[in-house]
C-alpha cells in the first residue's frame, strides 16, 4: 500500500487502517502509526501542495502533520482514520494560510470522529427501472454535460481523451462530468418520487 516504505510494512499490508489503529490504541507503540501514516504520504503531499502552492512548504507541512498525528492521536479515539487525517491536513493548511504561513496553532479537537464524507453517497437502488430512468434523464442534461458524462462513464474515455475529442479544457471536462452526475441523480430522484406518489 505504501510506496517507498521506510518502516518495514510488508507483513502488515493485509491489515486495515482500523486494525492498525486498534493495535496502536492497545499498546501505544508509535510503530503502528508509522505504518498507517506512510500509506498516506503521497496524498498528504498532494493536499498540502493544493492549498499551499509551494513545494517546500508542502513538504514541511507533511512533516508537521506527521508530528501532530504522533503527538495527538493517543489523546483521542479516532474512528475513521482516513477522513480524520484528511481533515487534519486541510485544517493545517488553512491555518497556515490564515496565519500568513506563520506558526500554526490548529486545534484538532473539533470533529475528531469525522465520518466518511456522505456527499453524493446516498445510494439509489439500481433496479431495471432506475436504469431506464437514467437513460431518459441523460437526455435531459445539457449538451456539454450529456456529452462528457456519456464519453466518460459509458465509453470509458479519460479526461484527456474527452478534452481532445470535444475541444473543452480538462477542467471543463471534469466540471461537466461532476455537475452532470449530480444533475442526473437529482433528475432520477425526482422521477422516482413522482412515480411513487402516483
Amino acid at each position: 500500500m505504501a510506496i517507498f516504505p521506510v518502516v518495514n510494512t510488508e507483513k502488515y499490508e493485509s491489515l486495515s487502517d482500523q486494525q492498525l489503529l486498534d493495535k496502536f490504541y492497545a499498546d501505544h507503540d508509535n510503530t503502528w502509526l508509522g505504518i498507517i501514516l506512510q500509506r498516506y504520504t503521497l496524498l498528504l503531499l498532494g493536499v498540502c501542495m493544493k492549498y499551499l502552492k509551494n513545494e517546500e512548504e508542502a513538504k514541511d507541512s507533511v512533516q508537521q502533520i506527521f508530528l501532530k498525528v504522533i503527538q495527538e492521536l493517543h489523546k483521542y479515539k479516532v474512528e475513521y482514520f482516513k477522513s480524520w487525517l484528511y481533515m487534519v491536513a486541510k485544517n493545517h493548511c488553512l491555518m497556515k494560510l490564515r496565519s500568513g504561513h506563520g506558526k500554526i496553532s490548529a486545534e484538532l479537537h473539533n470533529e475528531m470522529i469525522a465520518a466518511p464524507e456522505e456527499e453524493d453517497k446516498a445510494e439509489i437502488a439500481l433496479t431495471e427501472k432506475t436504469l431506464d430512468l437514467m437513460k431518459a434523464s441523460l437526455e435531459e442534461l445539457n449538451n456539454e454535460q450529456r456529452q462528457c458524462v456519456t464519453l466518460f462513464y459509458l465509453d470509458k474515455k479519460s479526461y484527456q481523451h474527452i478534452s481532445e475529442e470535444t475541444g473543452f479544457s480538462m477542467m471543463q471536462v471534469k466540471s461537466y462530468i461532476q455537475n452532470g452526475k449530480r444533475n442526473l441523480k437529482i433528475l432520477i430522484e425526482k422521477k422516482l418520487k413522482q412515480g411513487s406518489s402516483k
Binding site: 517507498f4 504520504t41 513538504k59 504522533i70
Partner: peptide, 29 residues
C-alpha cells in the same frame, strides 16, 4: 491530492520527496 500533485514542476521527483518524507517519519516514530 491529485490536483496538488499535478502542480509539481517535476513529476519524477515526487517519488524521491515521498521517500525522504517516509524516512523522516521513521525517525520521528
Amino acid at each position: 491530492a491529485m490536483e496538488g500533485l499535478q502542480e509539481f514542476k517535476d513529476k519524477q521527483q515526487i517519488s524521491y520527496v515521498v521517500e525522504a518524507l517516509n524516512r523522516d517519519l521513521k525517525r520521528k516514530v
